[in-house]
Structures are given as structure tokens and as C-alpha cells.
Amino acid sequence: MAVDKFPVEASHILMFARSVGDKNEIYYDADYAAGTEPGSIIAPPTFAQASAQFDPDYFLRPKIGEPWFGSGKEPTGIKRESGGGGGGGGGGGLHAEQHFEYHRHLKPGDVLTAETKPGKTWEKESKRAGKLVFSESVTEYRDQNGELVITAKGVGVRTERPVDS
């Protein structure tokens, strides 16, 4: 993933905070936020994940004019090759881990870039989902001054079959 321009905007922060059930006024009320320690609206701790909105190639967003694997007339809009690893669900596996290191917190007006580098990969056998293939990626978010603001590490897992619950 590479994001050239992730503009951090107040309305996006407001909607993101609502979606995670966080009613802290610092995420939407500038007057309230002015009286807090950060002194302005900031973004909630997992907001950087929404950089996906600004990744032109992000594969879990329908693209105009392109096939999409979700349901329409049929249960999936894409015919999948047979024998292509069953579980974990079509969309490139499941999210296994996520880590953030905050060098500072994001605020409206920031314009970030994000650069992702692949990390290690490893395999594990599990009772609940068969063979698991883990892969790590590290993303560095930098602000408009080139300063590192957040370092994120994600771990994805592809499962051999759907996870038993």
C-alpha cells in the first residue's frame, strides 16, 4: 500500500469516532477541544487505518466499472478459480494483529503520506482453521513536514478454511 495524500479532515474524524461508538467531544467539538490538553480536535487512536480511503489500489473497496466480489444477483460477483484456498473469505484473509506507535496524534489539517513495507511471513497449523499463513506489513505515516507521526504494524492471516466458531 502506498498513499500519497491522506488529508485528515474534521468531518471524517467525527464520522469515524461515531462508528467506533466513541462520544468524546474532542473528536467533533472544536470549542470543547480548545480547552483540552491537546488544545484542538485530534483523531481517535485507530484512525490511521482509514488511510485505506485514500489508497487508489485498496482492494477492499469497490471500484467504479470493475467487478466486485460481494453479492448482487448472485452470491458473488466474481467467479473464483476452483481449488483456490477456501476459507478466510474471499477478501484476502483476516486481520490477526494490529500495532500502533504514536509519535504524535493526528489533527485536522494534517496531510499524511503512508508507505508500507512487507515484513516477515510465517505458518502455523491450527485446529480451528487448518493451515494459517501469517504476513506482516509495516506502514510509516508522515505528515506534511515529512515528520514520522505514526508507525503501524499489521499482521494478516490466510486460513485454509473458514474459522470454526
Binding site: H12, M15, F16, R18, S19, V20, Q49, A50, A52, Q53, Y58, L60, R61, P62, F69, G70, S71, P75, T76, G89, G90, G91
Partner: peptide, 17 residues
Amino acid sequence: YAGTSGDYNPLHTDEVF
């Protein structure tokens, strides 16, 4: 959350799929 994060994986919102 799909809308705000941008993660539209049908596993989270599309019961049929």
C-alpha cells in the same frame, strides 16, 4: 465502520456472500 474506515470487505456487511 465499513464506511468510515473504507474497508468494504463483504465479510462484514454482506450476509449473502
